[in-house]
Amino acid sequence: MVRMSAAERRESVVRAAISEFARGGYHGTSTEAIARRVGVSQPYLFRLFPGKKAIFLAAAERCVEDTIRTFEEAAEGLEGEAALHAMGAAYIRVIEERPERLLMQMQMYVAVAAAEEEGDLAFGETVRAGWTRLWDAVNLPLGADVNETTNFLACGMLINCLMAMGFPPGHRVWEGLYPSARITGRLEK
């Protein structure tokens, strides 16, 4: 049996946390479930991360960074409409192939709202900082066009919601996305 380093174990915790939090949300997911998925004890889990919030925020940060990397790789060497199409198609591919990433994103937004309602601003600060980096990653390939960036991200959020609710690609609720967003390459009828 090969022993994992602390960094490798930490990485496995982040991956497991994404899967667990995607399904159960922040409040519905126990650190015990994450530890069990990784195959470590809870005390060991807390040697890697100081608490549940730190685990959640590491998972949230990973989702944002993965999305940024997806957009950057797709748009490499492209600008404007070509970048828009490439980023949109790459994002659709990611959320179709790894739906836990989509669900984790949705849980991030719910966790921010719930935490801020309770007076905890750390969730929001971290997620908003990630969103700002995501905005920049989209804005630059789109020629720093604020309207294009807004439309792209707005359509992406609508796609997130429709996919999270399980609307099939041919359903009429998708129709408005086809002519304006044109980022639904794999969702086309």
Rank of each mutant, 00 (worst) to 15 (best):
R3W: 07
A6H: 12
A6N: 12
E8A: 13
R9C: 08
R9K: 12
E11N: 03
V13Q: 02
R15V: 02
A22T: 02
G25N: 05
H27Q: 13
T29L: 01
S30Q: 10
A33V: 01
I34T: 03
A35L: 09
R37L: 12
R37Q: 15
V38L: 10
V38D: 12
L45T: 06
L45P: 05
R47K: 14
R47I: 05
R47H: 15
G51W: 05
G51K: 09
G51Y: 02
K52P: 09
K52W: 10
I55S: 10
A59T: 09
A59G: 14
A60C: 12
R62S: 14
C63L: 06
C63A: 12
V64W: 02
E65L: 01
R69K: 15
T70Y: 00
L78S: 15
L78Y: 12
G80A: 13
L84W: 15
H85K: 13
A86W: 05
A86C: 11
G88W: 03
A90R: 08
Y91N: 13
R93Y: 11
R93P: 03
R98L: 01
E100N: 11
L103A: 11
L103I: 01
Q105A: 08
Q105H: 14
M106C: 09
Q107T: 09
M108P: 05
V112R: 14
V112F: 05
A113M: 05
A113Q: 09
A115T: 00
E116W: 10
D120W: 12
L121I: 05
L121W: 08
F123H: 09
F123G: 08
E125H: 03
V127Y: 06
R128H: 04
A129S: 05
T132F: 10
R133E: 07
W135L: 08
W135V: 05
D136W: 06
V138Q: 06
V138W: 02
N139K: 07
A144M: 08
A144E: 13
A144L: 10
V146W: 08
N147Y: 11
N147V: 11
E148L: 12
T149I: 01
T150G: 14
A154Q: 10
G156Q: 08
M157I: 07
I159N: 09
A164T: 01
M165I: 04
G166I: 00
G170A: 15
H171L: 08
H171R: 06
R172Y: 11
E175S: 13
G176N: 12
L177T: 07
Y178E: 11
Y178M: 08
A181P: 02
A181K: 06
A181S: 14
R182G: 15
G185K: 15
G185I: 00
R186W: 04
